[in-house]
Simulated scan of single mutants.
Amino acid sequence: MERYQKIDAQTFDLKAFYTKYNGKPGNKFFFLHCTDAKEYLKKVMNSITVIEAAGGMVINSKGEYLFIYRNKKWDLPKGKLEKGELKREGAVREVEEECGIMVNSIGARICKTYHTYTYKGEVVLKRTYWYQMGYKGSGKLKPQKEEGITSVRWFRKGHIEAIIKNTFPSIMDVLAKMDLFTEKPVPLSE
């Protein structure tokens, strides 16, 4: 069986595709063939509800990276932006709320990621803006339980195997941008 399947952008419907393939077992990957990816993404975004979110890759004074464990997956702290909230402000707010720390600094934007999920019975596309952040404290981390977060932990760069084996493709994109591994493994599903 082929690992990749080509889909023609002319006939692609994100809502129908997600509904059909979400939660189905298998390691098949799909790619859309189109002439202008940016223009096509705009078209897709006009056909679906887009949720704006922001989050952070926090590095402490020991050079360790902060991760959360939510819904049986390793993740990075992130969340939906509030009405009128700037992306950088929302990223800091989400990290502080979800991890129980006070961010000392916010740096450059790392990247943007996109992922699809069902929210209130509707297929939505979440666009997340990721920022580098610094933390100099040594306080106890406190997971935001009401958000499904059961653990918050620091990991050293060379010790993130557990993260790589059990995270989402969008988080892998952030880790790749931060050079946290040399070869990008392919997670089974998001």
Rank of each mutant, 00 (worst) to 15 (best):
A54T: 09
D36S: 03
N27Y: 04
A37W: 06
F31G: 09
L32C: 02
I48M: 09
K38T: 13
D36A: 01
K38D: 11
C34Y: 04
E52A: 13
T49K: 13
K24V: 14
N46E: 15
K42R: 14
L32G: 04
N27H: 03
K24I: 10
N46Q: 15
M45N: 05
D36V: 00
Y40G: 01
H33A: 14
A53W: 11
N46G: 14
H33Y: 04
D36I: 01
L32H: 03
I51T: 03
T35D: 09
M45I: 05
V44S: 13
C34R: 02
E39T: 04
F30Q: 06
A53R: 07
D36C: 00
K38C: 07
K24Y: 07
I48K: 10
E52M: 12
G26A: 08
V50H: 00
M45G: 02
V50R: 00
I48W: 01
K38H: 10
T35N: 07
P25S: 12
E39F: 06
T35K: 04
F29E: 13
I48L: 03
C34T: 14
D36G: 02
Y40K: 00
K38M: 09
N27G: 02
E39N: 14
I51E: 06
V50W: 00
K42T: 15
E39I: 05
V44L: 15
F29M: 13
K38V: 10
E52F: 08
S47L: 08
E52H: 13
I48C: 02
K43Q: 14
T49N: 12
A37L: 07
L41S: 05
V44P: 09
K42P: 05
F29Y: 11
K24D: 09
M45Q: 12
A54R: 02
V44K: 13
A37P: 00
L41R: 04
K38Y: 04
A53S: 15
F31R: 07
N46P: 00
K42E: 14
K43P: 05
T35V: 04
K28F: 06
K38A: 11
A37I: 08
K28D: 10
K42L: 13
P25D: 08
